[in-house]
Design a protein around this nucleic acid. Structure first.
Length: 452
RNA sequence: GGCUGGGUGGCAGAAUGGUCAUGCUGCGGACUGCAAAUCCGCCUACGCCGGUUCGAUUCCGGCCUCAGCCUCCA
Protein backbone atom coordinates (compact mmCIF):
# COMPACT_ATOMS: atom_id res chain seq x y z
CA UNK A 1 0.00 0.00 0.00
CA UNK A 2 1.25 3.38 -0.91
CA UNK A 3 1.12 6.24 1.53
CA UNK A 4 -1.25 9.06 0.68
CA UNK A 5 -0.13 11.70 -1.77
CA UNK A 6 -0.25 15.13 -0.20
CA UNK A 7 -0.41 18.34 -2.16
CA UNK A 8 -0.57 21.97 -1.21
CA UNK A 9 -3.70 23.67 -2.41
CA UNK A 10 -3.39 27.38 -3.09
CA UNK A 11 -7.16 27.45 -2.84
CA UNK A 12 -7.46 27.47 0.94
CA UNK A 13 -3.70 27.38 1.39
CA UNK A 14 -3.10 24.12 3.12
CA UNK A 15 -1.49 20.79 2.41
CA UNK A 16 -4.08 18.11 1.96
CA UNK A 17 -4.34 14.47 1.03
CA UNK A 18 -5.02 14.23 -2.67
CA UNK A 19 -8.27 12.44 -3.38
CA UNK A 20 -9.10 12.30 -7.07
CA UNK A 21 -12.61 13.05 -8.21
CA UNK A 22 -12.41 9.79 -10.16
CA UNK A 23 -9.62 7.47 -8.98
CA UNK A 24 -9.93 5.70 -12.30
CA UNK A 25 -8.98 8.85 -14.19
CA UNK A 26 -6.99 11.75 -12.78
CA UNK A 27 -7.20 14.99 -14.73
CA UNK A 28 -4.57 17.72 -14.68
CA UNK A 29 -4.29 21.03 -16.48
CA UNK A 30 -1.34 23.42 -16.55
CA UNK A 31 -1.27 26.90 -18.04
CA UNK A 32 1.16 26.71 -20.90
CA UNK A 33 3.25 29.37 -22.59
CA UNK A 34 2.35 32.24 -24.84
CA UNK A 35 4.47 31.41 -27.85
CA UNK A 36 6.10 34.52 -29.22
CA UNK A 37 9.69 33.99 -28.07
CA UNK A 38 12.09 31.35 -26.79
CA UNK A 39 11.10 29.66 -23.53
CA UNK A 40 12.92 30.96 -20.48
CA UNK A 41 13.90 29.01 -17.41
CA UNK A 42 10.73 30.13 -15.63
CA UNK A 43 8.61 28.49 -18.30
CA UNK A 44 10.80 25.44 -17.87
CA UNK A 45 10.26 25.37 -14.13
CA UNK A 46 6.51 25.15 -14.56
CA UNK A 47 6.92 22.46 -17.21
CA UNK A 48 9.36 20.39 -15.16
CA UNK A 49 7.28 20.65 -11.98
CA UNK A 50 4.13 19.64 -13.83
CA UNK A 51 5.98 16.82 -15.51
CA UNK A 52 7.22 15.52 -12.17
CA UNK A 53 3.73 15.82 -10.70
CA UNK A 54 2.32 13.81 -13.56
CA UNK A 55 5.04 11.17 -13.17
CA UNK A 56 4.03 10.71 -9.54
CA UNK A 57 0.34 10.58 -10.37
CA UNK A 58 0.91 8.03 -13.12
CA UNK A 59 2.79 5.89 -10.66
CA UNK A 60 -0.22 5.82 -8.35
CA UNK A 61 -3.25 5.96 -10.62
CA UNK A 62 -4.12 3.84 -13.63
CA UNK A 63 -5.05 6.72 -15.89
CA UNK A 64 -3.91 10.32 -15.89
CA UNK A 65 -4.72 12.90 -18.52
CA UNK A 66 -2.41 15.86 -18.58
CA UNK A 67 -3.42 18.88 -20.61
CA UNK A 68 -1.29 21.95 -21.14
CA UNK A 69 -2.26 24.62 -23.59
CA UNK A 70 -0.41 26.76 -26.09
CA UNK A 71 -1.56 30.35 -26.13
CA UNK A 72 -1.30 31.36 -29.75
CA UNK A 73 -3.48 34.43 -29.88
CA UNK A 74 -2.56 37.40 -27.77
CA UNK A 75 -1.71 41.06 -28.14
CA UNK A 76 1.98 40.43 -27.54
CA UNK A 77 2.04 38.03 -30.43
CA UNK A 78 0.06 40.43 -32.59
CA UNK A 79 2.54 43.20 -31.85
CA UNK A 80 5.47 40.97 -32.60
CA UNK A 81 3.89 39.88 -35.86
CA UNK A 82 3.29 43.47 -36.84
CA UNK A 83 6.87 44.43 -36.02
CA UNK A 84 8.20 41.65 -38.17
CA UNK A 85 5.57 42.02 -40.84
CA UNK A 86 4.56 38.39 -40.73
CA UNK A 87 1.47 36.38 -39.91
CA UNK A 88 0.76 35.62 -36.26
CA UNK A 89 0.76 31.96 -37.18
CA UNK A 90 4.34 32.12 -38.47
CA UNK A 91 5.49 33.18 -35.04
CA UNK A 92 3.36 30.88 -32.94
CA UNK A 93 4.10 27.75 -34.94
CA UNK A 94 7.81 28.37 -34.77
CA UNK A 95 7.97 29.02 -31.06
CA UNK A 96 5.52 26.30 -30.11
CA UNK A 97 7.80 23.85 -31.88
CA UNK A 98 10.89 25.22 -30.17
CA UNK A 99 9.13 25.14 -26.81
CA UNK A 100 8.37 21.45 -27.16
CA UNK A 101 11.90 20.71 -28.31
CA UNK A 102 13.44 22.58 -25.40
CA UNK A 103 11.17 20.95 -22.86
CA UNK A 104 11.85 17.50 -24.29
CA UNK A 105 15.54 18.07 -23.65
CA UNK A 106 14.69 18.72 -20.03
CA UNK A 107 12.99 15.36 -19.82
CA UNK A 108 9.51 16.85 -19.95
CA UNK A 109 7.04 14.55 -21.62
CA UNK A 110 4.62 16.01 -24.13
CA UNK A 111 1.19 16.62 -22.55
CA UNK A 112 -1.51 14.15 -23.53
CA UNK A 113 -3.31 17.07 -25.09
CA UNK A 114 -1.83 20.41 -26.04
CA UNK A 115 -4.78 22.51 -27.17
CA UNK A 116 -4.17 25.74 -29.04
CA UNK A 117 -6.33 28.74 -28.32
CA UNK A 118 -6.96 29.47 -31.99
CA UNK A 119 -8.42 26.01 -32.44
CA UNK A 120 -10.93 26.45 -29.62
CA UNK A 121 -12.53 29.78 -30.38
CA UNK A 122 -15.92 28.12 -30.68
CA UNK A 123 -15.64 26.59 -27.18
CA UNK A 124 -14.77 30.01 -25.82
CA UNK A 125 -17.74 31.65 -27.53
CA UNK A 126 -19.99 28.98 -26.08
CA UNK A 127 -18.64 29.51 -22.61
CA UNK A 128 -19.09 33.26 -22.87
CA UNK A 129 -22.67 32.67 -23.94
CA UNK A 130 -23.23 30.52 -20.89
CA UNK A 131 -21.75 33.23 -18.68
CA UNK A 132 -24.06 35.82 -20.23
CA UNK A 133 -27.05 33.50 -19.84
CA UNK A 134 -26.18 33.14 -16.16
CA UNK A 135 -25.93 36.91 -15.79
CA UNK A 136 -22.23 36.90 -15.11
CA UNK A 137 -21.29 39.35 -17.82
CA UNK A 138 -22.41 42.20 -20.03
CA UNK A 139 -21.93 43.38 -23.57
CA UNK A 140 -20.79 46.88 -24.45
CA UNK A 141 -19.85 47.98 -27.92
CA UNK A 142 -18.39 44.73 -29.19
CA UNK A 143 -16.74 44.05 -25.85
CA UNK A 144 -17.97 41.40 -23.47
CA UNK A 145 -16.98 41.82 -19.84
CA UNK A 146 -17.14 39.53 -16.89
CA UNK A 147 -19.02 41.10 -14.00
CA UNK A 148 -16.95 40.33 -10.92
CA UNK A 149 -19.74 41.44 -8.62
CA UNK A 150 -21.90 38.61 -9.89
CA UNK A 151 -19.76 36.11 -8.02
CA UNK A 152 -19.76 36.71 -4.25
CA UNK A 153 -16.73 34.48 -3.73
CA UNK A 154 -14.63 36.38 -6.30
CA UNK A 155 -11.12 37.02 -4.98
CA UNK A 156 -11.11 33.95 -2.78
CA UNK A 157 -8.11 32.38 -4.45
CA UNK A 158 -5.75 35.33 -4.16
CA UNK A 159 -7.23 36.50 -0.87
CA UNK A 160 -8.45 39.91 -1.84
CA UNK A 161 -11.80 41.60 -1.82
CA UNK A 162 -13.20 43.83 -4.49
CA UNK A 163 -12.62 46.84 -2.23
CA UNK A 164 -8.98 45.91 -1.81
CA UNK A 165 -8.67 45.63 -5.53
CA UNK A 166 -9.99 49.13 -5.80
CA UNK A 167 -7.14 50.51 -3.71
CA UNK A 168 -4.56 48.86 -5.88
CA UNK A 169 -5.81 50.27 -9.12
CA UNK A 170 -2.96 51.92 -10.97
CA UNK A 171 -4.20 51.85 -14.47
CA UNK A 172 -6.78 53.74 -16.35
CA UNK A 173 -10.02 51.83 -16.24
CA UNK A 174 -11.71 51.35 -19.57
CA UNK A 175 -14.90 53.38 -19.76
CA UNK A 176 -16.77 50.28 -20.86
CA UNK A 177 -16.23 48.54 -17.54
CA UNK A 178 -18.79 48.80 -14.81
CA UNK A 179 -16.32 47.80 -12.13
CA UNK A 180 -12.59 48.18 -12.56
CA UNK A 181 -12.17 44.53 -11.55
CA UNK A 182 -14.27 43.40 -14.48
CA UNK A 183 -12.22 41.78 -17.18
CA UNK A 184 -12.68 41.23 -20.86
CA UNK A 185 -14.09 37.98 -22.22
CA UNK A 186 -14.24 39.11 -25.82
CA UNK A 187 -12.91 42.18 -27.54
CA UNK A 188 -13.43 43.60 -31.01
CA UNK A 189 -10.63 43.38 -33.57
CA UNK A 190 -9.67 46.08 -36.01
CA UNK A 191 -9.84 45.09 -39.65
CA UNK A 192 -6.11 44.45 -39.86
CA UNK A 193 -6.08 42.44 -36.66
CA UNK A 194 -6.76 38.75 -36.40
CA UNK A 195 -10.37 38.06 -35.53
CA UNK A 196 -13.24 35.61 -35.55
CA UNK A 197 -16.94 36.08 -36.09
CA UNK A 198 -18.98 35.99 -32.91
CA UNK A 199 -22.44 36.97 -31.68
CA UNK A 200 -20.81 40.26 -30.62
CA UNK A 201 -19.16 40.98 -33.91
CA UNK A 202 -15.71 40.21 -35.28
CA UNK A 203 -13.19 39.99 -32.49
CA UNK A 204 -10.93 37.82 -30.38
CA UNK A 205 -11.04 36.27 -26.94
CA UNK A 206 -9.73 37.78 -23.73
CA UNK A 207 -6.78 36.04 -22.19
CA UNK A 208 -8.43 34.20 -19.32
CA UNK A 209 -11.28 32.56 -21.17
CA UNK A 210 -9.08 30.23 -23.17
CA UNK A 211 -7.94 28.16 -20.22
CA UNK A 212 -11.44 27.86 -18.78
CA UNK A 213 -12.86 26.85 -22.13
CA UNK A 214 -10.08 24.46 -23.13
CA UNK A 215 -9.90 22.69 -19.79
CA UNK A 216 -13.66 22.34 -19.86
CA UNK A 217 -13.54 21.01 -23.40
CA UNK A 218 -10.70 18.58 -22.79
CA UNK A 219 -11.18 17.47 -19.19
CA UNK A 220 -14.69 18.46 -18.09
CA UNK A 221 -15.40 20.42 -14.92
CA UNK A 222 -14.44 20.16 -12.19
CA UNK A 223 -11.10 18.47 -12.76
CA UNK A 224 -8.44 17.53 -10.20
CA UNK A 225 -5.39 19.75 -10.39
CA UNK A 226 -4.66 23.03 -12.07
CA UNK A 227 -1.01 24.04 -12.13
CA UNK A 228 0.73 27.28 -12.97
CA UNK A 229 3.19 29.91 -11.81
CA UNK A 230 2.63 32.26 -8.85
CA UNK A 231 2.34 35.27 -11.04
CA UNK A 232 -0.75 33.73 -12.57
CA UNK A 233 -2.67 33.41 -9.31
CA UNK A 234 -4.02 36.88 -9.78
CA UNK A 235 -5.66 37.71 -12.01
CA UNK A 236 -5.42 34.75 -14.37
CA UNK A 237 -6.39 31.81 -12.19
CA UNK A 238 -8.79 33.91 -10.16
CA UNK A 239 -10.59 34.85 -13.36
CA UNK A 240 -10.48 31.37 -14.84
CA UNK A 241 -12.23 30.11 -11.74
CA UNK A 242 -14.78 32.90 -11.81
CA UNK A 243 -15.65 32.16 -15.43
CA UNK A 244 -16.01 28.46 -14.81
CA UNK A 245 -18.11 28.99 -11.69
CA UNK A 246 -20.40 31.27 -13.56
CA UNK A 247 -20.66 29.14 -16.68
CA UNK A 248 -21.48 26.03 -14.70
CA UNK A 249 -23.78 27.85 -12.30
CA UNK A 250 -21.81 26.59 -9.31
CA UNK A 251 -20.69 29.39 -7.03
CA UNK A 252 -18.14 27.39 -5.10
CA UNK A 253 -14.56 28.23 -6.06
CA UNK A 254 -13.61 24.56 -6.32
CA UNK A 255 -16.18 24.06 -9.06
CA UNK A 256 -13.33 24.58 -11.54
CA UNK A 257 -10.37 22.63 -10.19
CA UNK A 258 -10.20 20.98 -6.81
CA UNK A 259 -6.56 21.81 -6.29
CA UNK A 260 -4.62 24.79 -7.53
CA UNK A 261 -0.94 24.02 -7.53
CA UNK A 262 1.34 27.02 -7.73
CA UNK A 263 5.05 27.04 -8.45
CA UNK A 264 7.40 29.80 -7.38
CA UNK A 265 9.41 32.29 -9.35
CA UNK A 266 12.91 31.91 -10.73
CA UNK A 267 15.46 34.56 -9.84
CA UNK A 268 18.80 34.97 -11.55
CA UNK A 269 21.77 35.45 -9.21
CA UNK A 270 19.44 36.94 -6.61
CA UNK A 271 17.77 39.31 -9.01
CA UNK A 272 14.41 39.24 -10.63
CA UNK A 273 14.57 37.98 -14.19
CA UNK A 274 13.28 40.70 -16.37
CA UNK A 275 13.66 42.13 -19.80
CA UNK A 276 14.65 45.52 -18.49
CA UNK A 277 17.59 44.06 -16.54
CA UNK A 278 18.34 41.86 -19.52
CA UNK A 279 18.97 38.74 -17.47
CA UNK A 280 16.34 36.45 -18.88
CA UNK A 281 17.70 32.94 -19.06
CA UNK A 282 16.56 31.08 -22.14
CA UNK A 283 16.52 27.30 -22.15
CA UNK A 284 17.64 27.50 -25.75
CA UNK A 285 20.90 29.18 -24.63
CA UNK A 286 21.45 27.24 -21.41
CA UNK A 287 21.46 23.89 -23.16
CA UNK A 288 24.33 25.06 -25.32
CA UNK A 289 26.60 25.27 -22.29
CA UNK A 290 25.20 22.73 -19.89
CA UNK A 291 24.00 19.19 -20.08
CA UNK A 292 20.19 19.47 -20.06
CA UNK A 293 19.98 16.96 -17.25
CA UNK A 294 21.87 19.37 -15.02
CA UNK A 295 19.28 22.05 -15.71
CA UNK A 296 16.47 19.74 -14.71
CA UNK A 297 18.37 18.67 -11.63
CA UNK A 298 18.83 22.27 -10.56
CA UNK A 299 15.14 22.96 -11.09
CA UNK A 300 14.29 19.99 -8.86
CA UNK A 301 16.76 20.98 -6.16
CA UNK A 302 14.42 23.68 -4.92
CA UNK A 303 10.95 22.83 -3.68
CA UNK A 304 8.47 23.93 -6.33
CA UNK A 305 6.67 26.39 -4.09
CA UNK A 306 9.84 28.20 -3.02
CA UNK A 307 11.46 30.91 -5.05
CA UNK A 308 14.36 29.44 -7.00
CA UNK A 309 17.59 31.37 -7.18
CA UNK A 310 19.38 30.34 -10.35
CA UNK A 311 23.13 30.76 -9.86
CA UNK A 312 26.27 29.55 -11.52
CA UNK A 313 27.32 27.95 -8.25
CA UNK A 314 24.03 26.09 -8.05
CA UNK A 315 24.61 24.90 -11.57
CA UNK A 316 28.07 23.73 -10.58
CA UNK A 317 26.71 21.83 -7.58
CA UNK A 318 24.02 20.17 -9.63
CA UNK A 319 26.64 19.13 -12.13
CA UNK A 320 28.80 17.61 -9.40
CA UNK A 321 25.88 15.68 -7.99
CA UNK A 322 25.03 14.24 -11.35
CA UNK A 323 28.64 13.39 -11.96
CA UNK A 324 28.71 11.37 -8.75
CA UNK A 325 25.67 9.46 -9.92
CA UNK A 326 27.37 8.79 -13.25
CA UNK A 327 30.49 7.60 -11.44
CA UNK A 328 28.52 4.94 -9.64
CA UNK A 329 27.01 3.66 -12.85
CA UNK A 330 30.42 3.50 -14.45
CA UNK A 331 31.56 1.20 -11.65
CA UNK A 332 28.45 -0.94 -11.45
CA UNK A 333 26.24 -1.22 -14.52
CA UNK A 334 22.66 -0.59 -13.40
CA UNK A 335 19.54 -2.48 -14.28
CA UNK A 336 16.07 -1.16 -13.67
CA UNK A 337 15.13 -1.63 -10.02
CA UNK A 338 12.45 -0.15 -7.82
CA UNK A 339 12.34 3.42 -6.61
CA UNK A 340 14.02 4.02 -3.29
CA UNK A 341 11.36 4.18 -0.58
CA UNK A 342 12.64 7.36 1.01
CA UNK A 343 12.78 9.09 -2.35
CA UNK A 344 9.23 8.02 -3.03
CA UNK A 345 8.02 9.13 0.41
CA UNK A 346 9.53 12.56 -0.16
CA UNK A 347 7.74 12.89 -3.49
CA UNK A 348 4.45 11.91 -1.88
CA UNK A 349 4.83 14.77 0.57
CA UNK A 350 3.88 17.67 -1.63
CA UNK A 351 6.39 16.75 -4.31
CA UNK A 352 9.38 17.42 -2.08
CA UNK A 353 12.05 16.98 -4.72
CA UNK A 354 14.89 18.55 -2.71
CA UNK A 355 14.30 16.04 0.06
CA UNK A 356 14.09 13.27 -2.53
CA UNK A 357 17.50 14.36 -3.79
CA UNK A 358 18.86 14.27 -0.26
CA UNK A 359 17.79 10.64 -0.13
CA UNK A 360 19.48 10.09 -3.47
CA UNK A 361 22.65 11.46 -1.92
CA UNK A 362 22.23 9.20 1.09
CA UNK A 363 21.79 6.28 -1.26
CA UNK A 364 24.99 7.22 -3.08
CA UNK A 365 26.83 7.15 0.22
CA UNK A 366 25.31 3.82 1.15
CA UNK A 367 26.29 2.34 -2.20
CA UNK A 368 29.91 3.35 -1.71
CA UNK A 369 30.04 2.11 1.85
CA UNK A 370 28.48 -1.25 1.05
CA UNK A 371 30.59 -1.99 -1.97
CA UNK A 372 28.26 -1.20 -4.85
CA UNK A 373 25.57 -3.79 -4.22
CA UNK A 374 23.61 -4.19 -7.41
CA UNK A 375 20.32 -3.96 -5.56
CA UNK A 376 21.21 -0.49 -4.30
CA UNK A 377 22.62 0.63 -7.62
CA UNK A 378 19.46 -0.52 -9.38
CA UNK A 379 17.41 1.39 -6.84
CA UNK A 380 19.45 4.49 -7.52
CA UNK A 381 18.96 4.03 -11.23
CA UNK A 382 15.19 3.62 -10.91
CA UNK A 383 14.98 6.69 -8.68
CA UNK A 384 17.05 8.82 -11.01
CA UNK A 385 15.02 7.72 -14.00
CA UNK A 386 11.82 8.50 -12.12
CA UNK A 387 13.06 12.02 -11.51
CA UNK A 388 13.54 12.36 -15.24
CA UNK A 389 17.30 12.71 -14.87
CA UNK A 390 18.37 9.69 -16.78
CA UNK A 391 17.43 8.90 -20.25
CA UNK A 392 19.75 8.22 -23.14
CA UNK A 393 19.12 11.64 -24.63
CA UNK A 394 20.22 13.48 -21.55
CA UNK A 395 23.64 11.94 -21.50
CA UNK A 396 24.48 13.22 -24.92
CA UNK A 397 27.04 15.98 -24.76
CA UNK A 398 28.15 17.47 -28.02
CA UNK A 399 31.56 17.01 -29.59
CA UNK A 400 33.01 14.33 -27.37
CA UNK A 401 35.89 12.31 -28.76
CA UNK A 402 35.01 8.74 -29.67
CA UNK A 403 36.10 5.79 -27.54
CA UNK A 404 38.48 4.75 -30.32
CA UNK A 405 40.28 8.08 -30.32
CA UNK A 406 40.49 8.02 -26.58
CA UNK A 407 41.89 4.49 -26.42
CA UNK A 408 44.57 5.40 -28.94
CA UNK A 409 45.71 8.35 -26.86
CA UNK A 410 45.55 6.26 -23.72
CA UNK A 411 47.87 3.68 -25.26
CA UNK A 412 50.28 6.43 -26.23
CA UNK A 413 50.20 7.76 -22.70
CA UNK A 414 50.78 4.31 -21.30
CA UNK A 415 54.06 4.08 -23.25
CA UNK A 416 55.09 7.49 -22.02
CA UNK A 417 54.39 6.54 -18.43
CA UNK A 418 56.40 3.34 -18.72
CA UNK A 419 59.38 5.35 -19.86
CA UNK A 420 58.70 7.88 -17.08
CA UNK A 421 58.03 10.56 -19.62
CA UNK A 422 55.48 12.23 -17.37
CA UNK A 423 55.52 15.45 -19.29
CA UNK A 424 53.91 13.75 -22.26
CA UNK A 425 51.60 11.76 -20.00
CA UNK A 426 50.35 14.89 -18.31
CA UNK A 427 49.90 16.67 -21.57
CA UNK A 428 47.64 13.90 -22.81
CA UNK A 429 45.65 14.04 -19.58
CA UNK A 430 45.19 17.77 -19.90
CA UNK A 431 44.16 17.80 -23.50
CA UNK A 432 41.66 15.00 -23.02
CA UNK A 433 40.21 16.74 -19.99
CA UNK A 434 39.61 19.80 -22.10
CA UNK A 435 37.59 17.61 -24.44
CA UNK A 436 35.43 16.22 -21.66
CA UNK A 437 37.29 13.01 -20.92
CA UNK A 438 38.90 12.23 -17.63
CA UNK A 439 41.69 9.68 -17.22
CA UNK A 440 41.67 7.52 -14.13
CA UNK A 441 44.95 5.89 -13.20
CA UNK A 442 44.52 2.68 -11.30
CA UNK A 443 46.94 0.00 -10.23
CA UNK A 444 46.36 -2.17 -13.28
CA UNK A 445 45.68 0.09 -16.19
CA UNK A 446 44.29 3.53 -16.85
CA UNK A 447 40.62 3.88 -17.64
CA UNK A 448 38.58 6.88 -18.64
CA UNK A 449 35.13 8.32 -18.33
CA UNK A 450 33.17 11.18 -19.80
CA UNK A 451 33.00 14.08 -17.51
CA UNK A 452 30.17 16.60 -17.66
C1' G B 1 -1.36 51.75 -0.26
C1' G B 2 -3.55 46.54 -0.42
C1' C B 3 -2.87 41.19 -1.03
C1' U B 4 0.46 36.67 -1.08
C1' G B 5 4.71 34.00 0.23
C1' G B 6 9.61 33.86 2.27
C1' G B 7 13.92 35.01 5.84
C1' U B 8 18.28 28.40 8.33
C1' G B 9 25.76 27.82 8.72
C1' G B 10 30.65 30.45 3.03
C1' C B 11 26.90 28.56 -0.86
C1' A B 12 22.58 25.49 -2.03
C1' G B 13 18.68 23.50 0.77
C1' A B 14 15.24 20.08 4.06
C1' A B 15 13.10 18.42 8.49
C1' U B 16 11.79 19.33 13.45
C1' G B 17 8.92 21.65 20.35
C1' G B 18 14.32 18.78 23.53
C1' U B 19 20.74 13.90 20.85
C1' C B 20 23.21 14.26 13.18
C1' A B 21 19.86 17.13 8.15
C1' U B 22 22.29 16.45 3.61
C1' G B 23 25.43 18.06 -0.41
C1' C B 24 29.09 21.44 -2.17
C1' U B 25 33.01 24.66 -0.49
C1' G B 26 36.94 25.51 3.25
C1' C B 27 40.66 23.38 6.77
C1' G B 28 43.59 18.92 8.59
C1' G B 29 44.87 13.79 7.51
C1' A B 30 45.14 8.72 4.75
C1' C B 31 46.06 7.30 -0.26
C1' U B 32 48.63 9.11 -4.71
C1' G B 33 54.51 10.18 -10.00
C1' C B 34 50.56 13.54 -11.54
C1' A B 35 45.20 13.92 -11.72
C1' A B 36 40.99 11.88 -9.76
C1' A B 37 37.96 8.77 -6.95
C1' U B 38 37.39 7.07 -2.06
C1' C B 39 37.89 7.20 3.26
C1' C B 40 38.68 9.67 8.28
C1' G B 41 38.41 14.20 11.19
C1' C B 42 37.09 19.55 11.91
C1' C B 43 34.63 24.59 11.48
C1' U B 44 30.61 27.84 10.68
C1' A B 45 22.88 28.24 11.31
C1' C B 46 18.24 28.92 12.41
C1' G B 47 16.26 37.90 10.60
C1' C B 48 14.94 41.06 15.35
C1' C B 49 12.02 41.68 19.97
C1' G B 50 8.59 39.84 23.22
C1' G B 51 5.16 35.74 24.84
C1' U B 52 3.59 30.44 25.78
C1' U B 53 6.73 26.19 27.63
C1' C B 54 10.78 22.58 32.10
C1' G B 55 12.71 23.57 27.08
C1' A B 56 11.51 26.99 20.66
C1' U B 57 14.91 27.41 14.78
C1' U B 58 10.13 24.85 15.28
C1' C B 59 3.82 27.50 18.39
C1' C B 60 1.65 32.83 19.22
C1' G B 61 2.13 38.35 18.72
C1' G B 62 4.75 42.61 17.03
C1' C B 63 8.77 44.50 14.15
C1' C B 64 12.51 44.54 10.33
C1' U B 65 13.62 42.79 5.64
C1' C B 66 13.33 40.27 0.79
C1' A B 67 10.46 38.60 -3.26
C1' G B 68 5.93 38.25 -6.07
C1' C B 69 1.11 40.11 -7.38
C1' C B 70 -2.43 44.39 -7.80
C1' U B 71 -0.64 46.22 -15.76
C1' C B 72 1.53 41.53 -20.02
C1' C B 73 4.38 37.69 -17.53
C1' A B 74 5.81 30.73 -15.57
Amino acid sequence: MSDPFKLFNTLGRDKQVFEPIDPGHVRVYACGPTVYDYAHIGNARMAVVSDQLVRVLRHIYPKVTYVSNITDVDDKILNRAEELGVEMKDITQKYARIYNQDMARLGVGLPDLQPKATEHIQSMIEMIQRILANKGGYVDGGHVYFDVRSLPAYGGLSGRTLDELNEGVRIEVSEHKRHFGDFVLWKPSQDHEVGWQSPWGRGRPGWHIECSAMSFASLGLPFDIHAGGVDLVFPHHENEIAQACCATGNQSLDAYAKILGTNGFVMHEGQKMSKSIGNILLVHDLVKEHAPVVLRLLLLKTHYRQPLNWTSQGLENAKLLFQRILDIFSIQQPQMGTINQDVWAALLDDLNTPLALVHIEALIRKIRENGYLSEDVNQLYASVVFLGLMDADHLAVVDLPSPGEIEALLAKRELARKSKNFKVADHIRQSLLKQGVEILDTAGKSTWKYRL
